[in-house]
Design a protein around this nucleic acid. Structure first.
Length: 112
DNA sequence: GTTCTGACTGCGA
DNA sequence: GTCGCAGCCAGAA
């Protein structure tokens, strides 16, 4: 009995992202049980204000930061990602693309 | 009730 | 690699 709301699941999915790792909006939505609601995730993240929420780990499917460079949150996301060991260059995440799925991350073998 | 917009996604050029 | 178009869904006016 799903008493949890869509927003609650989305937030939970974002919190499920391990540190130093990134996930896509669509993936987060799918993980929350809301496939196709990537935009809803974006809206929630943009509205959320919880420092405990790793929203900075949420990127676009291309592995790019979904936040416009004109937005102050953009620099903040980059700074946070770098602080976690994620390589960000010119608004893009380097070292590894946005995980197609969290399962893939768990299955992802140590790269060399 | 309808209409518009959006921190998206996928495909094609 | 970048850019543009169309599709999809939800929330707000």
């Amino acid at each position: 009995m799903p008493g949890k709301s869509a927003a609650d699941r989305i937030l939970a999915a974002i919190r499920a992202v391990p540190r130093g790792q990134v996930a896509g909006y669509g993936e987060i939505a799918r993980r929350a049980g809301l496939p196709g609601r990537a935009r809803l995730v974006a809206k929630l993240v943009s509205e959320n204000d919880d420092p405990k929420l790793p929203w900075h780990r949420v990127l676009r499917s291309d592995g790019r930061i979904a936040i416009p460079v004109d937005s102050p949150s953009h620099a903040e996301q980059v700074q946070r990602l770098r602080a976690e060991g994620v390589v960000v260059e010119n608004g893009r995440v380097r070292g590894q693309r946005a995980a197609a799925s969290l399962d893939e991350v768990l299955w992802a073998p140590p790269r060399r």
